[in-house]
Every structure is written in structure tokens, then in C-alpha cells.
Design a protein around this nucleic acid. Structure first.
Lengths: 361, 361
DNA sequence: CTGAAAGCGCTTACAG
DNA sequence: CTGAAAGCGCTTACAG
């Protein structure tokens, strides 16, 4: 009995009107049908359980009402990263709000030609590039792309395209400047991977603050990690060898800071008495670490929302834009930083904080 | 000069062949064209920068090659939750692998009619329902839905549809049984919100293990939180009032366990010496808590991957399925649990672990 | 090996 | 207020 899913033609037939009329009442184009016709159509829709085919609609309107979120998935488990998922959540919230859907375009390989095929196929009205890597093919693609697009998160600052990000450079600059004001002079840096724009910019901020204070770091002051906890621990182990010792260390992200914390705990270095530490990102784990980690919060969800808004603007106005929206980072002061003190801390007094060896079950 | 984006017709014209032939070479339907024709077509494609319109293709093939991931977004910032994003990551990985795209369908309101409109519109070939809530309209919708679908994560066990989840009940049952084997008898439970299937099932596991050991909990043994850290702290504060005191507490998720840890730290309760604690989910913060939290890990990414695989199977075979795949949870033993000891811990010995008041900067 | 034609399910001028 | 017709950009029998 039940045949294919009903089409607009079936509705028209049942209501005894033309498909044009059905379209008109469905889209509320007032004045083009009588009240009585409207009711007949709506009833037919109801009885048939008719649902408009959006694919057909997209074809003729040349509009899919969906936003593409392009992620370079060849990097591996990407959405598992809270940064990306929070970004996505912001994009989604804004898109839904404005009547758009979200399609995730996971690039399997870094090939500009392949990117075109995946994006310029009529299935999306515009694209949000989520935190492209350094020398990402996406960046080249954008140059000759007539699909509306905006870059969200970590990206080069000289981009000739709309982009939304946190002020990586300025945030780290301010944090380091603050440490200097607290009396710290020997401030180490655990840098991030060079293929991240964000890591590069944060490093610049560190260097600028030191330079401005007339402090000249040797190469020993900077250790590079890959954003993982393990790499942070290893970097810190190296930094602990340097003499004279540092009184503070700034980390390019929280996970490395957490690793650094672990390295210091193992070595009996007191935080913050011996060494103050600040991270970046304000991940959830930062607040439950011991001591709770001072860090820089970036408004990731807002970045996502703003990207979507900018993209929708471009789509609906038909005008491309190269607006840059850069949010300031926010320093979250917790317990991992204290002012510099020339005399060493009273270890006896603080020894109670060092955790004893625990037996395993 | 540059007009609309080129269509298959433009390619045919330029190559001097019919559109049928263009389609054939583009889809590699061998034997239907000469090698020379093939090259002419490919060259025209190249010169024109032709990209097939997938919307048009979808319309005629009645296949979009995209999987819908349905989330009940009216709950708020959903993808910001690492559970959902990890699930999504698994789905994406498997889908990309199999040549499918992902569309996120964020439901703004819990209306079955609205769900139909959003899903059965030709834009997706099947749907994955991400962790529907208790009494979700999605569950009803599925009953009379001819779109292939599978439920991923937290869901009722008597579902007449394909579903993939962790064994919530069994995992908690095993954990509680283990605590009992360690000598614990007074074991409290911080329950989760009743509108989550997962929370309900975990609670069942707790009750079953106690019952099996002949332990009869009074209502005071169970406090309900809403999965947040704050609610865990509050629940624990109440549990600490109960006399005689508990020697162990099981939490419905890690965030509440982390809150409970905080409550105990404030009250000077030693973990695990006074009270052992186990969480659920194995969030990243659990491993950096002090003490590191013993918890139950669920293979969220695998759940996502398996859901996608099951869905694609249904789509490609044309046969609906109601297969259930239930993964076991894995107990991650860290430092928050020790065997029950009748004598109270030597507080003097452990006092050193209690953190002193910290001054703020 | 190749192509003309019908059709997927809609929307949009356009004519009445 | 209403409808016939063309068309969006593809694919698929079908005939040659």
C-alpha cells in the first residue's frame, strides 16, 4: 500500500490544486491563495505526512542553508580535542539560531584540489576553516575561492580573509609582563609545536615581553613540546637542569603545564614557592590540578559563534569580507604563581605538601 | 568573463561528447568509452575546473552519502561536552573512512513532528541519535521511522532499534562488587540526573551489587546530583553527615567525584584513608586530581565508530537492524581506593598531605 | 562505444 | 487568486 514518500505533486493532487499553489502556501507567500485553499493544502500535507525534500529545494535555489566546518582530519582524532568541539558547539549554536545546518567536512589529505571538490560541490553555502595548521593547503585554497569563508581559531594574522581568534601574542605578552612586575626575571618558556599558528604567536608574546624589560633569554630558556602532557614533563625536566634556576615558567598550553607540574612534583620542586607557572587555554583539568593552575582563558565558544555570524553575514549579503575579530585572552589567577622572592622557601614548612609514595592496590 | 560555475553540460560541450559520456568517464564506468574520449573529457574537466554538483547527484540517486548525527541541542551547550565530541569524532572517523559525510542535526525543541522534518528531508541517508534523554521524543519517533537509524550512547536497553553503548549497569556492579571484596560494606552512591538513561542504569548496578552481598542501603546512602562538580560537592557534604560514616563512595560520573573530593578536602577527610572513591567516565581531569581518581573508562570513540558502522551497514544493505552492541567498561585503578580497614588512619602520619591555606595573589 | 530523452522534487517567472 | 511550463544539474535506462 504505502508507496514512496509523498512529493509535492501528491499533495497538489490530493488538495486539488497546482504544485505552485502548494509551494506558495508552504512558504507563506501571502495573498496568492485563499484561506480555503490554504486549509485544503495543509490538510493534504497532514494526511499524506508530506515533508519537503530539501535536496530538491537546494538544487533550484542554489542554497543549501548549511554551513561547512572544515577540519583537517588527517591529523587524527581531532574532534576529541575539547578546543575543536567547543568551537563547533559555538558554530552550531549560532547557525541553528539563524536557520542553518552544519556539515562537517573532514579532510583526509592536505590537497587543495581535494578541498575544492569537498567544499565547492553545492552542498554548503560557506565554509568555516577550523584552526588551520601552519602551511595548511586550506590557506592557499582560500586565496582563489569564491565560496564565502571565515577562519576560526589559530591562524596567521596577515590573512586576507575573515578570521576570528584570540589574541595569542598579546595574552602571553601580558602574562609575562605581569610575572616581571611580580619580580621574576628568569622566566622559562615551554613552547608549542611550530606547525601551530597559535604556538608561534604565543612564543612571540613571550619574547616581546622579555625584550621590553631588557631581559635577554639564552636558547636554554625555551624548550619545545608538542602540546602533550608528556612533552611538558620532559621539557620541564630539561629546564630544571639550567643554572641558575628559573623562578617562573610559562607554558604554551595547559596540558604541557600539567606535565611540568608533574616533573616538578617528582623532583621535589615546590610550586609556586620555588617556581611559579602559568598555562594557556584554561582546560577543565587546570582547575583541579594541585596547585590549581594559573592560566589564560580563551573564549573558544564565542570564537565559534562569531565565525558563524560573520560567515552568515557574507552569505546573505553576497559580499566577501576580510574582517578580523580578535578576542583578548583572560588571565585566570589561581594558586600557581607568587611574587619572586630572593630567599629560598622554608622547605620544612612546606614539606607537608609533598605527597608520600602511595601503595598501589 | 567568468560566468557561473561550470556544469556537466559545459564539460560535454567542450569535450565534444554527450553528458552521458561525461558521467560515465567521471564514474569510471569502464567499457563505455574509448581511451581517447576519456582523455578529452578529463582535459575539459581540468580546463574548466569542473566540480560535480553533489546536490543534483543526490536528488536523482536518492542518496546523499551523508550521515545525520542528531543531538538534542535544546539542552544547551552540548558539543562542549567531551562525551559528545568524542562520540562525534568516532562517528566521523568511521564515516570518512567509508566515504560518507556528516551532518549535525541539532534539535531545538523536543517535538517529534519537527524531528521528522529535520531528518526525513532527503539530506541524510540515515541517522545516529546521540545519547537521547529519558523520554526523549526521538525514541518515539524511531518507532515509526523508515530512515535507517542507530542510537549511540546512553539509551534504554529494551529498545527495538540498533544501539551501541557501554555496559553502565554491569560496570558499576563490578566496581561496587570489587569494593565489597576489599572489605567495604558502607558504600554510598552519588547518583546522576534521572533523565539520563546512563545514570539510571549505573544506579541499578550499584543496587544490584549491594543486594547480592546482602547489604541493605537506607535512602540516606544515595544522593542525587546533576553531573556537575558543584552538585557532587554538595552531595558529598550531605553524605559526610551520615553516621556511622561511609568507608567508600561511588559516583555516577567523574565531575561529581571531583566535587566530592573537594568536599572531603575541605572537611579534612582523607582520601583514600578515610573514604575510598570511584568515579565514572575517565575524563582527563580524573588523572590529574589529587589523589588521582579511580574510575570506569568507557570506550566512547569506539561507540561512535561502531554506531557509524552499523548505520552504514543498514543503509547499504537496505535492511533495518536492531542489533545491540554493548561494550564493557574498564576499571582504571588509580590512588583513590584502598581496602577497608577497621581502625582509623593515623592522621598525624597523613596530615602532611593536607594542603595548607594558600594566600591569593 | 555513444547519445537523446526522461526524470529526480522542487521553485520561479509569467500569463491569465 | 491560480496554474502551465521551464529549469536547477545531475543519472539512468534505452536505443543505436
Amino acid at each position: 500500500m504505502s508507496r514512496q514518500t509523498p512529493t509535492i505533486k501528491d499533495v497538489a493532487l490530493r488538495a486539488g490544486v497546482s504544485v505552485t499553489t502548494v509551494t506558495n502556501v508552504l512558504h507563506g507567500r501571502g495573498g496568492r491563495f485563499s484561506e480555503e485553499t490554504r486549509e485544503r493544502v495543509l490538510q493534504a500535507v497532514e494526511e499524506l505526512g508530506y515533508r519537503p525534500n530539501q535536496i530538491a529545494r537546494s538544487l533550484v535555489r542554489r542554497r543549501s542553508n548549511t554551513l561547512g566546518v572544515v577540519v583537517e582530519h588527517f591529523r587524527g582524532a581531532l574532534l576529541g580535542n575539547p578546543y575543536y568541539s567547543t568551537l563547533l558547539d559555538g558554530i552550531l549554536a549560532e547557525a541553528v539560531q539563524a536557520g542553518y545546518q552544519i556539515k562537517i567536512i573532514a579532510l583526509e589529505r592536505p590537497d587543495p584540489q581535494y578541498v575544492r571538490l569537498s567544499t565547492e560541490d553545492g552542498s554548503i553555502d560557506g565554509a568555516i576553516l577550523a584552526a588551520p595548521l601552519h602551511q595548511s593547503p586550506l590557506l592557499q585554497w582560500m586565496e582563489h575561492c569564491n565560496l564565502p569563508h571565515v577562519v576560526a581559531g589559530s591562524s596567521p594574522r596577515d590573512l586576507r580573509a575573515a578570521c576570528v581568534d584570540v589574541d595569542d601574542e598579546g595574552s602571553v605578552y601580558s602574562a609575562v609582563k605581569w610575572l616581571i612586575e611580580l619580580g621574576h626575571r628568569r622566566i622559562a618558556f615551554i613552547a608549542g609545536p611550530v606547525n601551530y599558528w597559535s604556538a608561534r604567536q604565543r612564543e612571540q608574546g613571550y619574547l616581546r615581553a622579555l625584550a621590553e624589560a631588557g631581559i635577554t633569554p639564552t636558547p636554554h630558556w625555551i624548550r619545545r613540546g608538542n602540546y602533550s602532557t608528556l612533552s611538558g614533563r620532559q621539557a620541564m625536566e630539561m629546564l630544571l637542569q639550567v643554572r641558575p634556576p628559573f623562578s617562573a615558567v610559562v607554558c604554551c598550553n595547559d596540558w604541557m603545564a600539567l606535565g611540568a607540574l608533574e616533573a616538578m612534583r617528582r623532583e621535589g620542586v615546590l610550586v609556586p614557592e620555588d617556581i611559579s607557572i602559568v598555562g594557556f587555554d584554561n582546560v577543565e583539568a587546570a582547575s583541579v590540578a594541585s596547585p590549581p593552575l594559573t592560566t589564560i582563558h580563551q573564549p573558544v565558544r564565542e570564537i565559534g559563534m562569531t565565525s558563524a555570524r560573520l560567515l552568515i553575514q557574507q552569505i546573505e549579503s553576497g559580499k566577501p569580507s576580510d574582517e578580523h575579530v580578535i578576542f583578548p585572552g583572560e588571565l585566570i589567577q589561581r594558586d600557581s604563581v607568587i611574587p619572586y622572592s630572593p630567599e629560598p622557601p622554608d622547605r620544612a614548612k612546606h614539606l607537608q605538601r609533598v605527597r608520600p609514595r602511595r601503595r598501589r592496590i
